[in-house]
């Protein structure tokens, strides 16, 4: 199963996501990359992230994405 960092790298190979705390503000992801990101996360983890959770604060950085994914972890 790919890590979040690997999924991000696949979307934007030229970017170093480990050094940013705000992907949008730093221009590392645009709004359409986010669509790709959530689709890739759905496929990689076998989940369907609710459309209600597709908001900027949930993909600011790797920690925010990890926190979001924890909501979808099986108990």
């Amino acid at each position: 199963m790919p890590t979040i960092a690997e999924i991000l790298k696949d979307i934007r190979p030229e970017a170093d996501f480990t050094r940013s705390h705000d992907f949008l503000a730093d221009g590392m992801l645009d709004s359409f990359d986010l669509v790709t990101l959530f689709s890739d996360l759905d496929k990689a983890y076998g989940i369907s992230i609710s459309g209600l959770n597709i908001v900027p604060e949930n993909f600011q950085n790797i920690a925010a994405i990890q926190k979001l994914l924890e909501k979808y972890r099986q108990p």
Partner: peptide, 24 residues
């Protein structure tokens, strides 16, 4: 700001806002 080029005479869509509007 996201490499999309358009004029004020043309359609402007705030994709993130529209997506959020629809889902909410």
């Amino acid at each position: 700001g996201e490499n999309n080029f358009r004029s004020q005479d043309q359609l402007r869509m705030d994709g993130t806002a529209v997506f959020n509007f629809v889902q909410v």
